[in-house]
Design a protein around this nucleic acid. Structure first.
Lengths: 169, 169
DNA sequence: AGAAAATCGTTTCACTTGCAACGAATATCA
DNA sequence: TGATATTCGTTGCAAGTGAAACGATTTTCT
């Protein structure tokens, strides 16, 4: 029998899922307990904070969230006063989403904690190991991209500030 | 301003989540489309296949699934005829779960495909890099374990066959 | 211009999840 | 032994999710 000794706990997709779930769950305490944000809301908030105005579709394209998830997150964040939503003048199908002052305030409150959480996690690694991790994950994505029924991978958006993406590491 | 240039797409918890989601989603086609199993059902099935009889609690302890998720997955798998559920003689609170012949058949059909999916993913890596990946993920878990509000991490169960866990490779 | 197709954001619906509470069974301990 | 506490598996419920459908708007093409 060939599959007799299949061990779930050594199966890469399962291991990735467990690690990801634990990480997300522990991070969610940062934006959840203190600010009452869900994970989609947290993602939308920090993404919107990077640009002037953006539409639901732009968020959907760059963040790993389904369109309905973006729409609902935006609705909740608007109700909470963290962002403002107006219909675009030039194209009435589009909405223009931007942070309010309150949204910026929350953003500035959460991000340092999120970064310190990430720093705590990465503290176990040397700079070389962090590069390794990044590299391995990137190559994992590349393999997934080439598989038959490849799932959508959100586009990394062009950085408006900071180092250019063409710059060597 | 310190958090001006926070970039979600370079944030480790987010990156882990995206990679894990993509992997799980693509793997789920293996057990989903052809066998109609959900992810919890797939996990329960392959875990139960490793031992004689086990309880819901034992599954919950070793697999990253909430107790209700295990209970529901077991119920569905039983209804599908893939496993058998009987109340324990010695302790009537417990149930004894074991694979049926049909369950073993499905198991033997799925596992090779799952393993070949994993192999396809890992094909991009050298043996050393696979060890690196494993090592980095393990150390990530260790860090999470030591953090204040550490989330539960399922126990890796003792292997009944194959190499012992104390063996240095 | 006018019909048809495409796009955008929202909503609907069925399904899944996570958490707490529950009844049943056993263990603990006076 | 009898009262209390604990454990086990299930269920209820509120919230979240994904896929398809929808109305509104714009684009495309004749």
């Amino acid at each position: 029998m060939t599959s007799d000794n299949f061990n779930l706990s050594e199966f890469l997709p399962y291991k990735l899922s467990v690690l990801s779930s634990r990480t997300t769950k522990m991070l969610s305490k940062v934006y959840g307990e203190k600010y009452g944000l869900s994970t989609p809301e947290w993602r939308v908030l920090v993404h919107v904070a990077r640009r002037e105005k953006m539409s639901v579709r732009e968020i959907h394209d760059s963040v790993y969230l389904e369109k309905p998830a973006v729409s609902r997150a935006v609705a909740k964040l608007e109700k909470a006063g963290l962002l403002r939503k107006t219909t675009c003048d030039k194209d009435h199908r589009l909405v223009e989403i931007e942070l309010t002052e309150g949204g910026l305030y929350v953003f500035n409150g959460i991000v340092p904690e999120a970064l310190s959480f990430e720093a705590a996690i990465l503290s176990a690694f040397s700079p070389e190991e962090r590069d390794q991790l990044h590299d391995l994950m990137e190559r994992l994505h590349d393999v997934l991209d080439r598989l038959p029924d490849a799932t959508r991978r959100p586009q990394m958006d062009n950085d408006t500030s900071g180092k250019s993406s063409t710059e060597a590491h």
